[in-house]
Write a protein that binds this DNA or RNA. Structure first.
Length: 847
RNA sequence: GCCGAAGUGGCGGAAUCGGCAGACGCGCGCGACUCAAAAUCGCGUAUCUCCGGAUGUGUGGGUUCGACUCCCACCUUCGGCACCA
């Protein structure tokens, strides 16, 4: 068979001169392979620790090595890559690293399910597979800085950080009712429970009393909240979510004396309603409950109720729908401000974890208390009266929660309740009955996990010395690899004698190791510090390196980490700051939360069968097309609807660029890329479009991350170049042509790194397109001499005119009013006003 | 229930500071090239129309010479939180 004509011509063209003239066909596969190999050999993306250039730390959330890249990753990393390349073309010293959040349940579950493959091997294989997929995307990572959290050289420092927190009293062990996921066979932090279900497997979470390790993130609640204000580069949405999660509320703590003589503390945001208290409710787990009911006829009933509630899942327990049930304990306590005896109840809706686990009941001014009081026939007393109204407790249909004047409140009567809040607090403090208090919804971070594939908690239990930290020089506490994973719910560390048995670092006696491992969120809360000195064996990170690079200038990732990872990382950074390990108080200066990648309006998932694999797309169209599409289809923070036809369109566009360059490449050799002298006509217009595009793309990327409009601007430039190419050669300026072509390639380089590099070489350049400086637009070139303005009458477009761009408003009015067509349109009408906006419009208001 | 975001052609989206609504791309239609098809290139493409225009950015009001953009009320969708005292 004869070779096809195209193949012949390709072969012929490529003989003319290596890298000098562009082949006819866009062969993405060989181009991408060629350049990936070259970039790797020349190590062009490796970054020294220090430089004279200004630094820029561009970071994307590192992935869990599941084994396969999904479109969400492609989106995340394509965005990051554009930012990193854009910044480095602007002369920044850019740190752009990648690594692996490599500890976690899937590895362990895979080992149990399929048998044979150890989590370490499974993880390693997955990392290898994903690394090669990332490389196929042509991302500009410095792979010399790669980290994996499951590597002993990394988790040594995770353990070291645990010890640091332990030293400062921020890591502690306590017995508490915790969230237990029966399917994952481990406890979970509050942040990992969504609507009462395990966020990873959606199993209903149970409550268990367990002795566990916590980090005192609550100590930092106020700073985590206050410093949100400093994060101007964060989306408002994420800041609000964190604010709500921290849940600060101001109020006061008030002590009620129980008849047993015990002090019962309550937290309230409404101390101004203290005189309206008609009962008290304790959480079923409240330590005073048992004492209250001693010897009371209610005792048996209350105990049964307490046991019932304790057995409920977190979901049932905290559901808003659940009926509010209260039981009298038979005991009473005294309201300190008026000496009144009020009954003490036990209620299922009172949570031991929030405030003091006791609530004062003010039914007249709290809707929930109101309903509760009506249900159980408890008295209602109005202590806040609205202006111009007289509330009667008997006739009220709902609680009055608005402002008013205090009544039935002793010497506070007549005080506006807002002022009353501070006055009552002062009064309580003077009498030592209570004090102003701030409460947070945020709870301490539970970091113990009853699973194998994680960083061991570096603690030892000694019968003599109690809990003893492993000395720093003995780190890492190595996770033993010779274990057998048989079933979920059995942590093999608890059966691994070699691991468990040790000696006490303090007294040398036989001792046991902690067998729980750390929450993987702990590993991922500091990895961006490690990137700055990834192979440092003496320290978690080099102080100089961290002071040079941190904070991260741009962080990019999914919004699903709005609370979890981002809050934990902020907490860690504040601890590091306090310990003098870094100078930044916040880890991430700017945050971009990218939207999801959808198909048919839904998140891609195996169960829905709507998954599009990046591998397939790369194989069919190449990485450049995949990247182009994902950046072009939607602005980054919005959800993106996958479209096969849209991908096709981007592929067509790159082909169009290819053909354009191929068609003119020969004529561009040895032509300067800066036109000389004064341009006129098509040449001036072509150059205007080129420079306008530079301006537009630069602003779209740097000011708003709108890659979609940046790409569309380049598309318009390409369209204009196609027109220009067909102008008779005698009227064309080859330098304008070359400048246009080079501009297209340079502006597109961060988006489609391979094809631009190939074409850049093809038009005779010897240096990589990726080491070029970002072009600057010429202010004079973008000036338009003439503009089309709109002529409006009463705001409706009636005509268009071409006028000199610099015409001032008065001249515009005069010109427009003098037009016969305008005169005709306004004939017989009264001109009230004429508005002229330079370069835009003239609006004539008539009656 | 509370907090937040979003609603624009057949579709993804654009309009950045209150000034031509629908850039760019997809899809569709027409034409050129071709024996033909694909690819490519070019043109057209919001709706209605009595061909003068009229209407149109979720709905209803308002501010303004002028509103996708600002204000008020509401509807829908999505996301977060949800007995937090």
């Amino acid at each position: 068979m004869l070779p096809k004509l195209k193949e012949v011509s390709n072969r012929f063209l490529s003989l003319i001169g290596p890298g000098r003239i562009v082949k006819e066909r866009y062969d993405f596969k060989s181009i991408e392979q060629k350049w990936q190999a070259q970039w790797e050999t020349k190590d062009i993306y490796s970054v020294p620790d220090f430089s004279d250039k200004p630094k820029y730390y561009c970071l994307e959330m590192f992935p869990y090595p599941s084994g396969k890249l999904h479109m969400g990753h492609v989106r995340n990393y394509s965005i990051g890559d554009v930012v990193a390349r854009f910044k480095s073309m602007h002369g920044y010293h850019v740190l752009h690293p990648m690594g692996w959040d490599a500890f976690g349940l899937p590895a362990e579950n895979a080992a149990i399910k399929h048998g044979g493959l150890h989590p370490a091997e499974w993880t390693r294989d997955n990392i290898d597979a994903m690394r090669s997929q990332l490389k196929q995307l042509g991302l500009s990572y410095d792979w010399n800085r790669e980290v994996a959290t499951c590597h002993p050289g990394y988790y040594k420092w995770t353990q070291w950080l645990f010890l640091e927190l332990y030293k400062t009293g921020l890591a502690y062990k306590k017995k508490a009712a915790v969230n237990w996921c029966p399917s994952c066979a481990t406890v979970l932090a509050n942040e990992q429970v969504k609507e009462g279900e395990c966020e990873r497997c959606s199993t209903v979470v149970q409550r268990r009393e367990l002795d566990q390790w916590f980090f005192k993130i609550t100590d930092y609640a106020d700073r985590l909240l206050a410093d949100l204000k400093k994060l101007e580069g964060w989306p408002e949405k994420v800041k609000i979510m964190q604010e709500n999660w921290i849940g600060r509320s101001e109020g006061s703590e008030i002590v009620f004396k129980a008849e047993t003589g015990d002090e019962m503390k309550v937290f309230t945001t409404r101390p101004d309603t203290i005189y309206g208290v008609t009962y008290m409710v304790l959480a079923p787990e409240h330590p005073l409950v048992e004492k209250m009911i001693q010897g009371k006829p209610e005792a048996q009933q209350v105990r049964e109720f307490v046991n019932q509630v304790r057995d409920l899942s977190e979901l049932d327990r905290t559901s808003t729908e659940a009926e509010k049930i209260g039981l009298p304990t038979g005991a009473y306590c005294i309201n300190p401000v008026n000496g009144e005896k009020v009954p003490v109840l036990v209620g299922n809706y009172v949570l031991m974890e929030y405030g003091t686990g006791a609530v004062m009941g003010v039914p007249a001014h709290d809707q929930r208390d109101f309903e509760f009081a009506r249900k159980y026939g408890l008295p209602i007393r109005v202590v806040i009266q609205p202006k111009g109204q007289e509330l009667q407790s008997e006739t009220m249909t709902e609680a009055y929660t608005e402002d008013g004047l205090m009544v039935n409140s002793g010497h506070f009567d007549g005080t506006p309740n807002r002022q009353g809040i501070t006055k009552v607090i002062k009064y309580l403090e003077e009498n030592r009955w209570g004090s102003g208090q701030i409460n947070y919804r945020l709870r301490d971070w539970l970091i113990s996990r009853q699973r194998y594939w994680g960083a061991p908690i570096p603690m030892v239990y000694c019968d003599q010395c109690g809990i003893v930290p492993v000395p720093e020089e003995e780190l890492p506490v190595t996770l033993p690899l010779d274990v057998e994973l048989k079933q979920v719910g059995k942590n093999p560390l608890t059966e691994c004698e070699d691991f468990m048995n040790t000696t006490c670092p303090q007294c040398g006696a036989k001792a046991r190791r902690e067998t729980d491992t750390m929450d993987t969120f702990m590993c991922s809360s500091w990895y961006y510090y490690r990137y700055t000195s990834p192979r440092d064996e003496e320290n978690a990170w080099g102080k100089q390196q961290v002071e040079h690079w941190l904070p991260v200038d741009q962080y990019i990732g999914g919004v699903e980490h709005a609370i979890l990872h981002l809050l934990y990382s902020r907490f860690f950074t504040k601890v590091f700051y306090d310990q003098g390990y870094c100078k930044n108080e916040e880890p991430f200066e700017n945050l971009l939360t990218q939207g999801m990648v959808l198909k048919d309006g839904a998140k891609m998932s195996k169960s829905k069968g709507n998954v599009v694999s990046p591998e397939d797309i790369i194989a069919r169209y190449g990485a450049d097309t995949a990247r182009m599409f994902i950046l072009f289809a939607a602005p980054p923070e919005r959800d993106l609807e996958w479209s096969d036809q849209g991908v096709e369109g981007c592929y067509r566009f790159l082909n169009r660029v290819w053909r354009l360059v191929a068609a003119v490449s020969e004529s561009l050799q040895e032509v300067p890329s800066r036109p000389e002298g004064n341009l006129v006509g098509v040449n001036r217009e072509m150059r205007r479009i080129t420079h306008y595009t530079i301006k537009k793309v630069t602003e779209d990327i740097s000011q708003r991350f709108n890659f979609n409009t940046a790409v569309s601007a380049v598309m318009e430039l390409v369209n204009a170049m196609y027109q220009y190419k067909d102008v008779p050669a005698s009227d064309r300026d080859p330098a304008v042509m070359r400048e246009g072509i080079e501009t297209i390639l340079v502006l597109l380089a961060p988006f489609a790194p391979h094809v631009t590099e190939e074409l850049w070489e093809g038009i005779g350049n010897t240096q990589s397109v990726h080491t070029q400086s970002w072009p600057q637009y010429d202010k004079d070139a973008i000036v338009e001499e003439e503009v089309t303005i709109v002529v409006q009458i009463n705001g409706k477009v009636r005509d268009r005119m071409i006028i000199p761009a610099e015409m001032d408003p008065e001249a515009m009015k005069e010109l427009v009013m003098g037009q016969p067509k305008v005169q005709e349109l306004i004939e017989g009408k009264n001109v009230v006003k004429v508005i002229a906006v330079p370069k835009k419009l003239v609006n004539i208001v008539v009656k």
